[in-house]
Design a protein around this nucleic acid. Structure first.
Lengths: 152, 152
DNA sequence: CCCAAATACATGTACATACATGTATTTAAA
DNA sequence: TTTAAATACATGTATGTACATGTATTTGGG
């Protein structure tokens, strides 16, 4: 569906303005599809993201700050997201040894397990709903990185 | 900044997967810049969006449902966003006349005023930070609309 | 005409963002 | 060495999303 239909207007100041809204809507669309897939696992998009980040270093632990650096949404309140994951026993939280200020986080077996099965679903989702070939995706990536050249 | 640096990884399954993350990040980046601009006006991104939508029909009123149809994020809880706008006296809420179930919303003079001045800032922002020319933006719009072809 | 279903909106809950502030620990300058 | 600044994280508040449910009004089949 074209963005004009999605938000029921064609009053864009120019093609660049339209691109801004198109990016915002596409992100919402993708996030919503992801949420629906994760619902069966009792995970949110953000919780899943944290689990994936932890998997990247597993079996090493990671401190909260390093997890935050790798989040897509940089204002994520990582300690609070970890609270939910601890409640569900998907990660363990411990005091840092080298640096007492740090809290170090590690995936549990349950966390690894739920991550493995949910990742299968998420990969399928991405393969199925993102209607782009590799070459088009490359062009898209270049344009998105160009649009962000002015780093606010 | 390339998405690899942003989320400190280069483990993408393929270029399409990377594009998905790039879209999510770019949307967050744009939304954050918008938030900062709107902060001076005491508005959130979503409140501003509702004001703009109302402006599209002004001086006509709009019902809550029609506002919702035009929102970028389709799960927005429009009644609640309107609550804040009513508190700030930027819009007026009235019982619908033709259909008693409806609530009709209209911009106030204060709403028109704050919308005018904030829109100047937002337009400047878009012109300044979105580093794309019209032709590139057109390509980007086409790719974003293509990626959404499978309407979840 | 009557009443069940549909519709429009409000409201409640869990979780998240955006941001300010508090607390404990480490670092580094005097 | 002592202590102020910086750092890492936790926590509090306002606002928003995602979704379920409640309430009032309208619609439509019998």
């Amino acid at each position: 569906m074209k963005i004009e239909q999605v938000i029921q207007t064609n009053k864009f100041r120019n093609e660049v303005h339209k691109a801004g809204l198109n990016i915002l809507y596409t992100a919402w669309w993708l996030k919503t599809a992801t949420y629906k897939e994760l619902k069966d696992f009792g995970l949110t998009h953000e919780q899943y993201n944290v689990l994936r980040i932890l998997k990247g270093k597993y079996p090493q632990e990671m401190c909260v700050k390093d997890i935050g650096y790798r989040m897509i949404e940089k204002n994520s309140n990582v300690p609070r997201i970890i609270d939910r994951l601890v409640d569900k026993k998907l990660v363990k939280r411990n005091q840092g040894e080298q640096d007492g200020r740090q809290t170090v986080i590690q995936l549990t077996q349950a966390g690894l397990k739920i991550l493995a099965s949910s990742t299968i679903k998420i990969n399928e989702l991405y393969d199925n709903i993102l209607s782009l070939n590799n070459k088009e995706a490359e062009t898209l990536n270049n344009l998105l990185e160009k649009i962000r050249e002015t780093e606010a």
